[in-house]
């Protein structure tokens, strides 16, 4: 199959999923929370006032009409008005997402840099001390509440030792770098703003490591089991039997095939990190989508919550599409299928 054909097919398959997601979010936002009119007018509203507002908001229309209107709004970038910030939800999302993106990307990079080598070491030293240690570490990572780890890190490195900052994206009073991507580290690097770059990285460390802990556990476990199954395969045994040196077998033959399946799971790990960012941002007062969502929840700002949900779902789908496409280019078998 041709690469373009593959991407086209995947894009086509995305359409029903996106429609499904919009229906689901519509169902959550429009049918579950009871009566939005009452929510707005409060408990002291008169029946006449409620009825008028309902009519005004189109709540008396049939559901499919309401859905059509909702979809029409989304298509034009109208995600409603945040009742807390009093701004259009889309504006808020654009404003808060670079921070989340920066945090999540940092966590993913850490995950790959730590998780894959750990998995490989664990597999190549199966049942040895290094393996036992890595496995326990990975298991703890998976079972650990990330927000709790965040609190402990905060307690130790910020409150006790005072070596790392504990909240926000920059030191107090520091002006953010000129806006290019909205990700401070990238922007500071591009504009050569070294003090800000340093501060931005320092601020990223604790939340980034907290967020990475869970995904490191996942990726380490997957890499280990994938490497183990490759190491058991006949062609690796053949390579050993030929007398090829261990390192060459491990890094020349096994690595490529052992790590490849892990790539397909990167999308899932990214989704996990996105979800986890909600909690981690709350711990470190990181002004991203998660923090925004948590504030919105506390102020019963429903359009904002749904906006974040929709945006994260769309990002998740796109990331999975990218990962699959990447995999398509890496795995020669798929091209000839």
């Amino acid at each position: 199959m041709h690469a373009l054909q593959f991407v086209a097919k995947r894009l086509l398959l995305m359409i029903p999923i996106l429609i499904g997601i919009s229906i689901l979010t519509f169902a959550i936002s429009n049918t579950i929370p009871g009566d939005p009119a009452r929510l707005i007018l409060g408990p002291k509203a008169t029946p006449e006032g409620l009825e008028a507002l309902r009519e005004d908001m189109g709540l008396n229309d049939p559901l499919y009409v309401q859905y059509g209107r909702y979809m029409g709004g989304i298509a034009q970038g109208d995600l409603g008005q945040s009742t807390y910030s009093q701004r259009p939800v889309l504006n808020d999302l654009l404003r808060y997402s670079p921070a989340t993106f920066e945090l999540t990307m940092f966590a993913m990079v850490v995950t790959l840099v730590v998780g894959i080598p750990f998995g490989i070491i664990s597999a190549s030293r199966k049942d040895k001390l290094a393996d036992q240690f890595t496995r326990i570490f990975a298991l703890l990572g998976v079972a650990m509440p990330a927000f709790w780890l965040g609190l402990l890190l905060l307690l130790f490195f910020y409150l006790k030792l005072g070596v790392l900052p504990g909240s926000g994206r920059l030191d107090g009073g520091m002006a953010p770098p000129d806006y290019i991507t909205g990700m401070y580290t990238v922007d500071a690097l591009l504009t050569g703003n070294w003090p800000v770059l340093y501060a931005a990285i320092m601020h990223l460390i604790l939340p980034g490591l907290t967020l990475a802990a869970v995904t490191i556990g996942m990726i380490t476990r997957m890499t280990r089991s994938s490497m183990l199954s490759v190491l058991k395969s006949d062609y690796i045994r053949t390579a050993y039997a030929k007398g090829a040196p261990e390192n060459r077998v491990l890094y020349g033959h096994a690595l490529r095939n052992g790590v490849m399946p892990v790539i397909t799971l990167l999308g899932m790990a990214f989704g996990h990190a996105l979800g986890g960012s909600v909690l981690v941002e709350a711990v470190f007062s990181w002004p991203g989508l998660g923090q925004y969502a948590v504030n919105a929840i506390n102020y019963l700002d429903f359009p904002a919550v749904m906006g974040v949900t929709l945006l994260i779902a769309v990002i998740f789908i796109l990331v999975n599409l990218i990962v699959d496409t990447l995999y398509f280019f890496i795995d020669p078998r798929l091209k000839h299928n």
């Binding site: 959550i28 909600v278 749904m306 949900t309 998740f316 789908i317």
Partner: peptide, 11 residues
């Protein structure tokens, strides 16, 4: 296609 905790959060 939602990260689990996000969907649970909005519901």
């Amino acid at each position: 296609s939602f990260p689990g905790i996000i969907l649970a959060m909005s519901i």
